[in-house]
Design a protein around this nucleic acid. Structure first.
Length: 860
RNA sequence: GGGUGUUUAGCUCAGCUGGGAGAGCAUCUGUUUGACGUACAGAAGGUCAUAGGUUCGAUCCCUAUAGCACCCACCA
């Protein structure tokens, strides 16, 4: 009993059980014994944070990866496609703390050990959510090798890397100005700070001279509360205006302390009054000045953003912004406020907590980036460099590396890789050790490492480094890293640095950068706008394939893509179309149809035409898939299915399928079977569920479409036959158009005069035209017959209403005359003849010749 | 302040070695309800941001200008 396809395409039903089915075939697993002779291909998933739910950006990224993985498998590669999740220090800790608060607890009450247990619980819970979500996206990753950035192997890798960098003096501890997040109470690296234009105020205060309080300097600041930490006023040494007052001292109006006036080249004479205040412990530039001049560096703020005991008593423990207001008020009352101006300036915010960052002097761990970066830059100048797609990102990448500063890697968190540095309790000796040291003798550094410290090791550590080289030998460097442009600096750059330093290779051969997903109006998706699209909502509505089709095929590499409901509906319509045509074709084939190879000699004109179109499509898809141009690739598939297969070919062979001509039908079956199979295989990487489902109804299908290989072109197609097929299609279009223009009605009967070359298969042709354009009778005439319209060698004359026909001919003549004029103007241009490509000139000449010939037939 | 991208049909976007402007949606007109949640056939709609330049020829290459977007940067 033949299995019947459902009448109606149900994207949700179609995907049922398939993920499990594929898993049972072990085809997603890399490096299996039976595949070791194949060429390797490797990718890792940019690990999402364990904090929760995959959003549309993840969907875009991960589906793109998956399309590539499936495509490579079809091309007989042994694909290693490795899933991972990131422990995401700050983000996860914030979530767990939030949870604790809901239980009326906090981390200090339960202690570090208990807190970490909570974090692990959290991680377990969300890591399993990810598997569910990945299944819903149809991901074909190798779960037997999945990794977590804090699993045992990663701990070993992180410690090894840390120790080596430490021993090489590339990791150091230093007292420097860092970005402090008062909300999360941790240091942040520079790239975790987002600068935003913010409405602020410029406050001007009087710094009075000690020797004459009536005389003062006007100093501007945007952060008055930092005045408590002022230890000098500074001007440029070349500033003539101030050269006479340099030996005098001024009173800091906020705390009445006496501070000197110094000079430093940093100060810009032209800016403001040319005199600025210097707060070494709370501003990176002031810090540098302070160091140069040995200024005291009092800190005036607590770690939670409140004022500390170095401030006048009335301000101690006051929030920084409350303090700002109170202080300004106080100074106004004292008569030390000159004016307040509104300004818009750039203010740094924490990427995570969105509070204003406080630059603060603090002891932290840093990686010395310069020497590491130099090696990467050297690599990028050789042939072993990593190629970026689109290539402009290569410039962005190197530019960032050239300008990067030391990386602050310590975080004052509990959740993460603890810094493997220990202090001997007695001798105070400091040691870095990859092994945990006895806590009776040593105390370990309290801080943990920046999350990106571990994810930077992903390309080789996920493959087993340093424990085993089984995978790295075969799959490292990774073939491609696919990611959005927003984490080039966070991740791609750091992976490159560690990759080059620890493996002496760039960790990936190619980096494919895609854009961010936005809404139809090009706006970022955000909670406050309520314009976000949950990818799983789409999956529930249309099924996974529609989402996958949109995510992998819309947009251009490197550019953002604007997507709305319409796109998904469009994709769904396409899938419905494929479903229906497949159902029709499969049902048209006889039960137990035995697949036969195509016999090139038995093909009709339109068979050849279709197969040649298919060949084009196959090569175009392959070419573009290999360039990661998924959108262009899928477009050619789309066009082929809609135009060539459905609208043209299937319409043309319908009547033949109903005929009694068994030989002809056998030929059609063999063509249809091949074309349909190829279409499904090519569609498979994009929309695996529907492809697998329909495939299973094909005669003599394999167990899974996975066991098919990417289609090859059909050889020995007679391109002359195909060209005639094209002529016939044009003739049909011409006749239909003629009817439209002459208001004849599409099914009105017409008569035709036809002239063709000697071996033209007239019966095929007339049969086809009867069915396609209701040609009642077809009369064969000589080439010289009056009024023939030529399609290459086939001449057509429509016999209908004489007057209307004359009009049509008149129009045609006009058109031809214009075309000839155009050709002439080109061909009469000597420059064109001399300098244009020969083929182009030839082409124009031939065109002209044809036009003239046709025109002559009318003018006779 | 520096840098990058972008500007093509009403909307969202293609246009990959410079050689007669394309798709989807939306609009309109036909035809069709025996693969198709309709589909098919067709129409309309564009000085390809603007101004120069290179070229026999420019949507495509170069220069400048403008709008939009993004990235980087310590200007008090």
């Amino acid at each position: 009993m033949k299995k019947e396809m459902d009448k109606i395409y149900d994207g949700i039903k179609v995907q049922q059980n398939k993920v499990k089915f594929w898993e049972s075939l072990h085809i997603n697993e890399g490096n299996r014994e039976e595949n070791k002779k194949k060429k390797p291909f490797s990718m890792i998933v940019p690990p999402p944070n364990v904090t929760g739910i995959l959003h549309i950006g993840h969907a875009k990224n991960q589906i793109t990866l998956d399309v590539v993985a499936r495509y490579k498998r079809l091309n007989n590669y042994d694909v290693l496609f490795l899933p991972a999740v990131d422990h995401a220090g700050i983000a996860t800790q914030a979530k767990v703390e939030e949870y604790l608060r809901s239980q009326n607890k906090n981390k200090y009450q339960i202690g570090r050990e208990e807190f970490l247990k909570e974090c692990y619980k959290w991680k377990e819970k969300y890591a399993s959510y990810f598997t569910e979500q990945w299944d819903a996206l149809g991901m074909s990753m190798d779960y037997t090798k999945s990794r977590f950035t804090m699993d045992e192997g990663m701990v070993e890798a992180v410690n090894k890397v840390f120790k080596q960098l430490y021993d090489e003096h590339l990791i150091y501890q230093g007292e420097r100005i860092i970005n402090w997040d008062p909300e999360l109470r941790t240091a942040l690296s520079n790239i975790e700070v987002v600068h935003k234009e913010t409405q602020g105020k410029f406050y001007y205060f009087k710094y009075r001279f000690v020797d004459n309080p009536e005389e003062y300097l006007t100093i501007a600041t945007t952060r008055p509360e930092t005045m408590f930490g002022d230890t000098a006023l500074v001007c440029n040494p070349k500033d003539e205006r101030y050269k006479d007052i340099l030996n005098r001292k001024v009173i800091n109006p906020s705390n009445n302390q006496i501070i000197p006036i110094i000079t430093d080249r940093y100060v810009d004479k032209e800016f403001g009054t040319g005199m600025m205040k210097c707060t070494p412990a709370h501003d990176p530039n002031d810090f540098e000045i302070g160091k140069r001049h040995n200024l005291p560096m009092p800190k005036i703020m607590n770690l939670d953003g409140t004022m500390n005991e170095n401030c006048p008593e009335e301000f101690v423990n006051m929030d920084r912004y409350v303090c700002r207001q109170k202080l300004v008020e106080k100074l106004r009352n004292q008569g030390d406020l000159v004016k307040i101006e509104d300004i818009v300036h750039q203010v740094g915010y924490s990427e995570r907590s969105d509070v204003v960052i406080e630059p603060m002097l603090s002891k932290q761990w840093f990686i010395k980036m310069k020497p590491l970066v130099v090696d990467v830059l050297k690599f990028q100048k050789t042939s072993k460099k990593t190629k970026f797609l689109p290539s402009r990102f290569s410039k962005i990448f190197t530019k960032w590396l050239e300008n990067t500063e030391d990386w602050c890697i310590s975080r004052q968190l509990w959740w993460g890789h603890r810094i493997p540095v220990y202090t001997n309790k007695e001798t105070k000796e400091v040691v870095c050790s990859t092994e945990k040291l006895d806590s009776n003798l040593y105390t370990q550094d309290e801080d943990v490492l920046d999350t990106w410290f571990s994810s930077a090791l992903a390309p080789f550590a996920f493959l087993g480094w340093p424990q085993t080289d089984e995978l790295t030998k075969r799959f490292y460097p990774l073939d491609v890293m696919i990611t959005a442009y927003d984490i080039i600096f966070f991740w791609v750059a750091k992976m490159s640095v560690d990759g080059v330093h620890f493996t002496h290779k760039m960790p990936f051969k190619k980096v494919y950068i895609h854009g961010l997903v936005r809404d139809e109006l090009g706006r970022k998706m955000s909670k406050s706008l309520g314009n976000g699209i949950d990818p799983f909502e789409i999956v529930r509505k249309y099924g996974c394939d529609s989402l996958r089709y949109v995510m992998s095929t819309s947009g251009t590499p490197g550019l953002d893509l604007n997507i709305g409901e319409k796109n998904y509906a469009f994709a769904n319509t396409f899938l419905i179309k494929i479903w229906n045509v497949s159902r029709f074709l499969i049902n048209s084939m006889p039960e137990n149809y035995k697949v036969k190879k195509i016999d090139v000699n038995s093909l009709t004109y339109i068979d050849s035409y279709l197969l040649e179109k298919m060949n084009h499509m196959i090569s175009k898809v392959k070419k573009n898939m290999d360039k990661y141009e998924l959108g262009i690739a899928s477009n050619s598939l789309y066009d082929f299915i809609y135009d060539d297969l459905c609208s043209t070919y299937v319409e043309m062979i319908k009547h033949e399928l109903r005929s009694q001509d068994e030989n002809r039908k056998q030929t059609i079956y063999s063509v249809l079977n091949l074309v349909l199979k190829n279409v499904l295989i090519i569609l498979f990487p994009f929309c695996p569920f529907i492809s697998e489902e329909i495939y299973s109804y094909l005669p003599q299908a394999k167990k899974s479409i996975y066991f098919e290989r990417f289609p090859k072109v059909v050889k020995n197609i007679d391109s002359k036959q195909a060209a005639i097929g094209k002529n016939i299609i044009d003739i049909i279009r011409y006749i239909r158009n003629y009817k439209m223009e002459n208001k004849l009605g599409i099914s009105s009967k017409i008569n035709l005069n036809v002239s063709a070359f000697e071996n033209f298969k007239m019966t095929d042709f007339s049969e086809l035209l009867k069915n396609m354009v209701f040609a009642d009778s077809i009369k064969i005439v000589e080439q010289s017959e009056e009024g023939l319209r030529f399609f290459d060698e086939i001449g057509i004359k429509i016999i209908a209403d004489k007057q209307k026909q004359d009009e049509a001919i008149k129009k045609r003549i006009e058109f031809l005359q214009n075309e000839i004029k155009r050709c002439d103007s080109m061909l009469n241009n000597e420059n064109f003849i001399q300098r244009a490509k020969k083929e182009k000139v030839e082409l124009e000449k031939n065109k002209r010749q044809k036009f003239i010939e046709e025109l002559n037939t009318y003018l006779k």
